[in-house]
Protein backbone atom coordinates (compact mmCIF):
# COMPACT_ATOMS: atom_id res chain seq x y z
CA UNK A 1 0.00 0.00 0.00
CA UNK A 2 2.69 2.42 1.11
CA UNK A 3 4.92 1.37 -1.75
CA UNK A 4 2.33 1.74 -4.47
CA UNK A 5 1.60 5.20 -3.13
CA UNK A 6 5.20 6.19 -3.61
CA UNK A 7 5.47 4.68 -7.05
CA UNK A 8 2.39 6.37 -8.43
CA UNK A 9 3.22 9.93 -7.55
CA UNK A 10 0.21 11.32 -9.37
CA UNK A 11 -0.78 14.93 -8.89
CA UNK A 12 -3.37 13.89 -6.26
CA UNK A 13 -0.70 12.25 -4.11
CA UNK A 14 1.68 15.16 -4.53
CA UNK A 15 -1.08 17.51 -3.43
CA UNK A 16 -1.78 15.47 -0.34
CA UNK A 17 1.89 15.08 0.55
CA UNK A 18 2.43 18.78 0.04
CA UNK A 19 -0.48 19.83 2.19
CA UNK A 20 0.76 17.64 5.04
CA UNK A 21 4.54 17.93 5.04
CA UNK A 22 5.41 20.05 2.01
CA UNK A 23 6.07 23.24 3.82
CA UNK A 24 8.42 21.60 6.30
CA UNK A 25 10.34 20.00 3.43
CA UNK A 26 10.63 23.39 1.77
CA UNK A 27 12.07 24.80 4.98
CA UNK A 28 14.65 22.00 5.29
CA UNK A 29 15.60 22.36 1.65
CA UNK A 30 16.00 26.09 2.13
CA UNK A 31 18.30 25.59 5.11
CA UNK A 32 20.46 23.19 3.08
CA UNK A 33 20.64 25.57 0.13
CA UNK A 34 21.40 28.52 2.40
CA UNK A 35 24.24 26.64 4.09
CA UNK A 36 25.67 25.59 0.72
CA UNK A 37 25.54 29.14 -0.59
CA UNK A 38 27.15 30.62 2.49
CA UNK A 39 28.31 28.46 5.41
CA UNK A 40 28.05 31.44 7.77
CA UNK A 41 24.32 30.84 7.64
CA UNK A 42 24.40 27.81 9.91
CA UNK A 43 26.54 29.47 12.59
CA UNK A 44 24.91 29.87 16.00
CA UNK A 45 25.08 33.63 15.99
CA UNK A 46 23.49 33.93 12.56
CA UNK A 47 20.68 31.58 13.49
CA UNK A 48 19.93 33.61 16.62
CA UNK A 49 20.05 36.67 14.43
CA UNK A 50 17.50 35.19 12.00
CA UNK A 51 15.23 34.16 14.85
CA UNK A 52 15.35 37.62 16.39
CA UNK A 53 14.64 39.24 13.04
CA UNK A 54 11.62 37.04 12.34
CA UNK A 55 10.04 37.38 15.76
CA UNK A 56 8.26 40.68 15.03
CA UNK A 57 6.72 39.31 11.84
CA UNK A 58 6.14 36.07 13.71
CA UNK A 59 4.07 37.76 16.41
CA UNK A 60 2.01 39.59 13.78
CA UNK A 61 1.55 36.33 11.86
CA UNK A 62 0.06 34.63 14.92
CA UNK A 63 -2.74 37.18 14.93
CA UNK A 64 -3.08 36.93 11.17
CA UNK A 65 -3.45 33.15 11.49
CA UNK A 66 -6.49 33.59 13.75
CA UNK A 67 -8.08 36.04 11.31
CA UNK A 68 -7.35 34.02 8.18
CA UNK A 69 -8.60 30.77 9.74
CA UNK A 70 -11.81 32.62 10.59
CA UNK A 71 -12.16 33.32 6.87
CA UNK A 72 -11.15 36.99 6.86
CA UNK A 73 -8.05 39.15 6.49
CA UNK A 74 -6.52 41.98 8.51
CA UNK A 75 -4.68 44.68 6.57
CA UNK A 76 -4.40 46.99 9.55
CA UNK A 77 -1.76 45.14 11.60
CA UNK A 78 1.31 47.07 10.37
CA UNK A 79 -0.15 50.46 11.13
CA UNK A 80 -1.66 49.32 14.42
CA UNK A 81 1.89 48.36 15.33
CA UNK A 82 3.19 51.84 14.44
CA UNK A 83 0.42 53.73 16.18
CA UNK A 84 0.61 51.56 19.30
CA UNK A 85 4.36 52.16 19.43
CA UNK A 86 3.82 55.91 19.41
CA UNK A 87 1.11 55.68 22.07
CA UNK A 88 3.44 53.70 24.32
CA UNK A 89 6.35 56.14 23.76
CA UNK A 90 4.21 59.20 24.43
CA UNK A 91 2.43 57.83 27.51
CA UNK A 92 5.64 56.41 28.97
CA UNK A 93 7.02 59.90 29.39
CA UNK A 94 4.09 60.99 31.54
CA UNK A 95 2.71 57.90 33.23
CA UNK A 96 5.59 55.45 33.34
CA UNK A 97 6.35 52.25 31.48
CA UNK A 98 3.78 49.75 32.75
CA UNK A 99 0.66 51.90 32.30
CA UNK A 100 1.95 52.91 28.87
CA UNK A 101 2.37 49.29 27.79
CA UNK A 102 -1.07 48.33 29.13
CA UNK A 103 -2.65 51.28 27.30
CA UNK A 104 -0.89 50.20 24.11
CA UNK A 105 -2.18 46.63 24.40
CA UNK A 106 -5.67 47.94 25.09
CA UNK A 107 -5.49 50.15 22.01
CA UNK A 108 -4.50 47.20 19.82
CA UNK A 109 -7.42 45.14 21.13
CA UNK A 110 -9.81 48.04 20.62
CA UNK A 111 -8.88 48.34 16.96
CA UNK A 112 -9.43 44.58 16.67
CA UNK A 113 -12.86 44.84 18.26
CA UNK A 114 -13.85 47.58 15.82
CA UNK A 115 -12.56 45.56 12.87
CA UNK A 116 -14.43 42.46 14.00
CA UNK A 117 -17.61 44.39 14.62
CA UNK A 118 -17.45 46.02 11.18
CA UNK A 119 -16.86 42.73 9.42
CA UNK A 120 -19.75 41.16 11.33
CA UNK A 121 -21.97 44.01 10.15
CA UNK A 122 -21.29 42.80 6.63
CA UNK A 123 -18.42 44.98 5.43
CA UNK A 124 -15.96 42.99 3.36
CA UNK A 125 -12.94 42.27 5.59
CA UNK A 126 -10.61 43.68 2.98
CA UNK A 127 -12.39 47.04 2.93
CA UNK A 128 -13.05 47.25 6.67
CA UNK A 129 -9.41 46.69 7.59
CA UNK A 130 -8.19 48.91 4.76
CA UNK A 131 -10.30 51.69 6.25
CA UNK A 132 -9.07 51.07 9.78
CA UNK A 133 -5.50 50.86 8.45
CA UNK A 134 -5.85 54.38 7.05
CA UNK A 135 -7.49 55.73 10.19
CA UNK A 136 -4.89 54.24 12.50
CA UNK A 137 -2.09 55.46 10.26
CA UNK A 138 -3.56 58.97 10.34
CA UNK A 139 -4.00 58.77 14.09
CA UNK A 140 -0.29 57.96 14.41
CA UNK A 141 0.62 61.11 12.50
CA UNK A 142 -1.83 63.20 14.51
CA UNK A 143 -0.58 62.17 17.95
CA UNK A 144 3.08 62.36 16.94
CA UNK A 145 2.77 65.35 14.67
CA UNK A 146 4.90 63.36 12.29
CA UNK A 147 7.88 63.34 14.67
CA UNK A 148 9.78 60.31 16.00
CA UNK A 149 9.50 59.66 19.74
CA UNK A 150 12.09 58.01 21.90
CA UNK A 151 11.48 55.76 24.90
CA UNK A 152 12.23 57.19 28.34
CA UNK A 153 12.78 54.19 30.61
CA UNK A 154 15.97 52.12 30.51
CA UNK A 155 14.11 49.09 31.85
CA UNK A 156 11.99 49.12 28.67
CA UNK A 157 15.06 47.95 26.72
CA UNK A 158 14.86 44.53 28.36
CA UNK A 159 11.91 43.35 26.25
CA UNK A 160 13.54 43.92 22.90
CA UNK A 161 17.24 43.84 23.66
CA UNK A 162 17.54 41.52 26.63
CA UNK A 163 18.37 37.82 26.68
CA UNK A 164 17.08 34.81 28.51
CA UNK A 165 20.15 32.61 28.87
CA UNK A 166 21.46 32.90 25.25
CA UNK A 167 18.07 33.42 23.64
CA UNK A 168 17.04 36.96 22.67
CA UNK A 169 13.92 38.15 24.49
CA UNK A 170 11.89 38.80 21.29
CA UNK A 171 12.36 35.13 20.40
CA UNK A 172 11.22 34.11 23.89
CA UNK A 173 8.10 36.28 23.60
CA UNK A 174 7.36 34.87 20.14
CA UNK A 175 7.81 31.28 21.31
CA UNK A 176 5.56 31.73 24.34
CA UNK A 177 2.85 33.33 22.23
CA UNK A 178 3.06 30.52 19.66
CA UNK A 179 2.50 27.93 22.36
CA UNK A 180 -0.46 29.82 23.80
CA UNK A 181 -1.96 30.39 20.35
CA UNK A 182 -1.51 26.76 19.41
CA UNK A 183 -3.26 25.70 22.60
CA UNK A 184 -6.12 28.13 22.11
CA UNK A 185 -6.69 27.12 18.50
CA UNK A 186 -6.57 23.38 19.01
CA UNK A 187 -7.71 22.79 22.59
CA UNK A 188 -10.35 25.37 23.45
CA UNK A 189 -13.94 25.79 22.37
CA UNK A 190 -13.37 29.35 21.21
CA UNK A 191 -10.40 28.29 19.07
CA UNK A 192 -12.37 25.44 17.55
CA UNK A 193 -15.19 27.86 16.86
CA UNK A 194 -12.76 30.06 14.89
CA UNK A 195 -12.15 27.11 12.56
CA UNK A 196 -15.85 26.33 12.33
CA UNK A 197 -16.87 29.89 11.49
CA UNK A 198 -14.12 30.15 8.90
CA UNK A 199 -15.06 26.81 7.36
CA UNK A 200 -18.79 27.47 7.15
CA UNK A 201 -20.35 30.49 8.81
CA UNK A 202 -23.97 29.48 8.22
CA UNK A 203 -23.52 25.94 9.54
CA UNK A 204 -21.75 27.36 12.59
CA UNK A 205 -24.54 29.84 13.27
CA UNK A 206 -27.16 27.10 13.00
CA UNK A 207 -25.08 24.98 15.39
CA UNK A 208 -25.43 27.67 18.03
CA UNK A 209 -22.02 29.33 17.66
CA UNK A 210 -22.09 33.09 18.28
CA UNK A 211 -20.64 34.40 15.02
CA UNK A 212 -20.21 37.97 16.21
CA UNK A 213 -18.26 36.87 19.26
CA UNK A 214 -15.91 34.74 17.17
CA UNK A 215 -15.31 37.46 14.55
CA UNK A 216 -14.52 40.00 17.23
CA UNK A 217 -12.34 37.51 19.08
CA UNK A 218 -10.22 36.69 16.00
CA UNK A 219 -9.65 40.36 15.18
CA UNK A 220 -9.02 41.17 18.81
CA UNK A 221 -6.24 38.58 18.92
CA UNK A 222 -4.80 40.13 15.78
CA UNK A 223 -4.95 43.63 17.28
CA UNK A 224 -3.40 42.41 20.52
CA UNK A 225 -0.57 40.68 18.65
CA UNK A 226 0.11 43.90 16.72
CA UNK A 227 0.35 45.76 20.01
CA UNK A 228 2.70 43.16 21.51
CA UNK A 229 4.85 43.35 18.38
CA UNK A 230 4.85 47.14 18.77
CA UNK A 231 6.20 46.88 22.32
CA UNK A 232 8.91 44.39 21.33
CA UNK A 233 9.97 46.38 18.27
CA UNK A 234 10.01 49.81 19.91
CA UNK A 235 11.89 48.36 22.85
CA UNK A 236 14.51 47.09 20.45
CA UNK A 237 14.71 50.38 18.54
CA UNK A 238 14.15 52.41 21.74
CA UNK A 239 12.07 54.79 19.63
CA UNK A 240 9.12 54.91 17.26
CA UNK A 241 8.03 57.08 14.35
CA UNK A 242 4.81 57.12 12.31
CA UNK A 243 6.34 55.02 9.55
CA UNK A 244 7.27 52.18 11.89
CA UNK A 245 5.41 49.03 10.91
CA UNK A 246 4.18 50.42 7.61
CA UNK A 247 3.45 47.54 5.20
CA UNK A 248 4.27 44.88 7.79
CA UNK A 249 0.89 43.27 7.01
CA UNK A 250 2.19 41.94 3.70
CA UNK A 251 4.88 39.80 5.34
CA UNK A 252 2.41 38.58 7.95
CA UNK A 253 -0.14 37.56 5.32
CA UNK A 254 2.61 35.96 3.25
CA UNK A 255 3.93 33.91 6.17
CA UNK A 256 0.45 32.73 7.09
CA UNK A 257 -0.41 31.70 3.54
CA UNK A 258 2.98 30.08 2.90
CA UNK A 259 2.34 28.15 6.11
CA UNK A 260 -0.75 26.66 4.51
CA UNK A 261 -3.66 28.65 5.90
CA UNK A 262 -6.39 28.57 3.30
CA UNK A 263 -7.60 32.03 2.28
CA UNK A 264 -11.06 30.46 2.12
CA UNK A 265 -10.92 29.91 5.90
CA UNK A 266 -11.33 26.91 8.15
CA UNK A 267 -7.87 25.51 7.57
CA UNK A 268 -4.44 26.29 8.97
CA UNK A 269 -2.23 25.89 11.98
CA UNK A 270 -0.16 28.32 13.96
CA UNK A 271 2.79 25.88 13.91
CA UNK A 272 2.74 25.86 10.13
CA UNK A 273 2.58 29.63 10.19
CA UNK A 274 5.83 29.56 12.19
CA UNK A 275 7.37 27.56 9.37
CA UNK A 276 6.13 30.20 6.92
CA UNK A 277 7.64 32.93 9.08
CA UNK A 278 10.99 31.10 9.12
CA UNK A 279 10.93 30.60 5.35
CA UNK A 280 10.45 34.31 4.71
CA UNK A 281 13.09 35.18 7.31
CA UNK A 282 15.66 32.75 5.92
CA UNK A 283 15.13 33.94 2.37
CA UNK A 284 15.82 37.55 3.33
CA UNK A 285 18.77 36.43 5.42
CA UNK A 286 20.34 34.53 2.52
CA UNK A 287 19.75 37.40 0.15
CA UNK A 288 21.36 39.71 2.67
CA UNK A 289 24.33 37.40 3.13
CA UNK A 290 24.69 37.24 -0.66
CA UNK A 291 24.46 41.04 -0.70
CA UNK A 292 21.50 41.11 -3.07
CA UNK A 293 20.06 44.62 -3.29
CA UNK A 294 16.96 45.33 -1.24
CA UNK A 295 15.10 46.24 -4.43
CA UNK A 296 15.64 42.77 -5.83
CA UNK A 297 14.66 41.34 -2.46
CA UNK A 298 11.26 42.96 -2.83
CA UNK A 299 10.73 41.24 -6.16
CA UNK A 300 11.81 37.92 -4.66
CA UNK A 301 9.44 38.29 -1.73
CA UNK A 302 6.54 39.23 -3.98
CA UNK A 303 7.23 36.21 -6.13
CA UNK A 304 7.23 33.92 -3.10
CA UNK A 305 3.84 35.23 -2.01
CA UNK A 306 2.52 34.59 -5.50
CA UNK A 307 3.95 31.09 -5.49
CA UNK A 308 2.50 30.25 -2.08
CA UNK A 309 -1.01 31.36 -2.99
CA UNK A 310 -0.73 29.71 -6.38
CA UNK A 311 0.09 26.41 -4.67
CA UNK A 312 -2.80 26.98 -2.23
CA UNK A 313 -5.23 27.42 -5.11
CA UNK A 314 -3.81 24.44 -6.96
CA UNK A 315 -3.97 22.06 -4.01
CA UNK A 316 -7.58 23.00 -3.34
CA UNK A 317 -8.67 22.27 -6.89
Amino acid sequence: MEKSKKIHLGSENIKQLYSEYGIVMVLILLIIVATALNPIFISGSNIMNVLRQVSINGILSIGMTFVIISGCIDLSVGNVLGCTGLIVMILMERFGMVPAILAGLAFGMLVGVVNGWGVHQGLPAFIMTLASQQMVKGLGYVISNGQPFSATDEAYKLIGQGFMWIIPMPVVVFAVLVIIAWFVLTRTRIGRSVYAVGGNQEASRLSGINIRKIRIFAYMVSGLMSAVAAVVLTSRLYSCDPLTGDNYQSDAIAATVIGGCSMAGGEGSVLKTVVGVLIIGIISNILNLLQVSSYLQMIAKGFIIFLAVFIDVWKNK
Binding site: R192, S193, Y195, G199, A203, S204, L206, S207, I209, A264
Partner: peptide, 27 residues
Protein backbone atom coordinates in the same frame (compact mmCIF):
# COMPACT_ATOMS: atom_id res chain seq x y z
CA UNK B 1 -23.92 24.88 3.00
CA UNK B 2 -25.87 24.83 6.25
CA UNK B 3 -25.16 21.56 7.96
CA UNK B 4 -21.47 20.75 7.90
CA UNK B 5 -18.12 22.48 8.04
CA UNK B 6 -16.54 20.62 5.15
CA UNK B 7 -12.85 21.34 5.86
CA UNK B 8 -13.18 20.07 9.43
CA UNK B 9 -12.99 16.44 10.47
CA UNK B 10 -15.88 14.10 11.19
CA UNK B 11 -15.10 14.30 14.91
CA UNK B 12 -14.98 18.09 14.94
CA UNK B 13 -18.31 18.30 13.13
CA UNK B 14 -19.99 15.91 15.52
CA UNK B 15 -18.96 17.91 18.59
CA UNK B 16 -19.56 21.42 17.28
CA UNK B 17 -23.19 21.90 18.29
CA UNK B 18 -22.45 20.97 21.89
CA UNK B 19 -18.96 21.85 23.06
CA UNK B 20 -20.05 21.11 26.62
CA UNK B 21 -19.92 17.42 25.74
CA UNK B 22 -16.14 17.59 25.19
CA UNK B 23 -15.03 20.62 27.21
CA UNK B 24 -14.40 21.27 30.87
CA UNK B 25 -15.78 24.35 32.57
CA UNK B 26 -12.83 26.53 31.48
CA UNK B 27 -13.58 25.78 27.83
Amino acid sequence: YEGLVLPLSVAHNISMANFDSICNKAG
